[in-house]
Design a protein around this nucleic acid. Structure first.
Lengths: 138, 138
DNA sequence: GCAAATTAATGATTTATTCAAG
DNA sequence: CTTGAATAAATCATTAATTTGC
């Protein structure tokens, strides 16, 4: 059975700002602070470069959908670099997966539109006479 | 800047390394060559200002990852301004995307701030549930 | 002003990823 | 689990910009 059912127990523990849950849900990197310059406390988690590095490394090593205990461990590790909560880690993985899928899907769309071989065309001269696409085209 | 640039102590030597004349080596655009000598074959494509203008315009208009056909069309258009191959256009878009991303990522990085406020919101409840810690994450 | 020396840009290659088809 | 398709990231290599001493 799906042991990794991943019921998000994390956002139940503390007050989740459900008012921000909308807005397309795109960025997981949480741009910059909404203020102008000075250190105004941010309302959302903003990962430090070290945190981001660790998260990317974990993701790259195959940790796509961490379990609850994995999220807790990762959170503990990342807290050493700055303020962070479990829900931040949970959402980071969720958004990262979605973002990767989206990116890949877009790439597939644009590629299947023409089913072309892209780079291998350019490795050799396209004008050498062997490729039928060398002419016309606009 | 440029701390980790390639330290090439030999770059006073003339030794042109282009042992593979894969790019024909005819008259590429060279911004300003010595007027006396004949066109010295350039080992790599050097875009003319017109070519650059068109490329930047296309990119700015939304053409970020052109398909093979689009690359061929663009190449055909740009060839009117000087010698060019499809792979040059392909590489140009690849590099342009990468360096735009690089620039934006560096900007984000520099404005990213560190949050020192520590919150212990997850002290007890996170570790509850009888989850055995010490699991290898990857 | 002018080239040699140096630095910054950028074209071209290589390496590591991604999702998902088989 | 392995591999196909196609990058994007990282790196290498060459060109232009510029600095520098004369």
């Amino acid at each position: 059975m799906g042991y990794s059912k991943t019921i998000n127990i994390f956002h139940t523990e503390v007050g989740v700002k459900s008012l921000q849950g909308r807005s397309g849900g795109d960025d997981c990197y949480n741009g910059h602070q909404p203020s102008s310059a000075a250190s105004q406390p941010s309302s959302r988690w903003n990962p430090t470069p070290e945190q981001l590095r660790v998260l990317d490394e974990l993701f790259g090593h195959g940790l796509k959908t961490p379990t609850a205990q994995q999220i807790l461990q990762v959170t503990a590790r990342l807290r050493h670099f700055g303020k962070i909560e479990g829900k931040n880690v949970f959402y980071w993985f969720q958004n990262h997966r979605a973002r990767e899928r989206q990116k890949r899907r877009r790439e597939l769309m644009s590629m299947r539109q023409y089913h072309s071989k892209e780079q291998q065309l350019w490795s050799n001269k396209e004008s050498a006479g062997g490729i039928g696409l060398g002419t016309v085209l606009y």
